[in-house]
Amino acid sequence: MNAFIQTQALKKTYQLGDQRVEALRGIELTIAQSDFVVFMGHSGSGKTTLISTIGGLTRPTEGSVSIEGTDIWRLNDRELSAFRNRKIGFMFQSFSLLPSLNVLQNVVMPVIFRKNGKREKTDAIRERALSLLAGLEMKKKIDAHPSELSGGEQRRVAIARALINEPDIILADEPTGELDIRTEREVIEIFRAINSQYRKTIIVVSHSLSWLESAKTVIIMKDGLMHLDVPDPVEALMGRACRP
């Protein structure tokens, strides 16, 4: 497999008072470009720590994360920020949007932190944002503020924002958490479309089994270890033994 994202001996240990918690215990992972990976597992299994380490948000205790050949944890703060801004689009379960900004401003917000952001014309950025919002059926609400949007609408805006800088990777942590089944389905469809149409590499962390149908790769996380090629993820999540 052509390694687009690769982790080597990735470990993360937290010190919680007197207790040491090994959130990641030597993760070896390779993700190809345009893959659609879903991490599933119980709370505390280490899945969020893994994608935040891949996304350059949490520094690992040991090991490395390489994206397109760049060891991201060797970059300094400014380089890593620029890398995240350029290469990765993030989506979080809650507090995804800044309440002081309207929909359009939230979508274009990552552009202001782009190193070459000044070179791109404001009109071009605005057009791209409007196009993304139109594709997500949110064009009519560009002036609305987050408090005026439903949960599903907020996720769509967050997706548009994640795409505004045309990143190669979308990292989403519980993107359908707290959503009803219908809206969850819509959001998953959007992710699938992004993966198939724009060829973006998508990495999702979720508890929801609804993602199983859409993902190309499903990885079960348990006790800081990764379980690939699980024949029956549902069984695995129900607590049956799975092969590391």
């Binding site: 400014r78 920020s81 995240r84 350029r86 993030f90 507090f95 932190f113 924002r161």
Partner: peptide, 16 residues
Amino acid sequence: VREIGLLKAVGASRFQ
């Protein structure tokens, strides 16, 4: 702090 975390996640450097 959460707002700051969000801004950092989308690429804001410490200086920004």
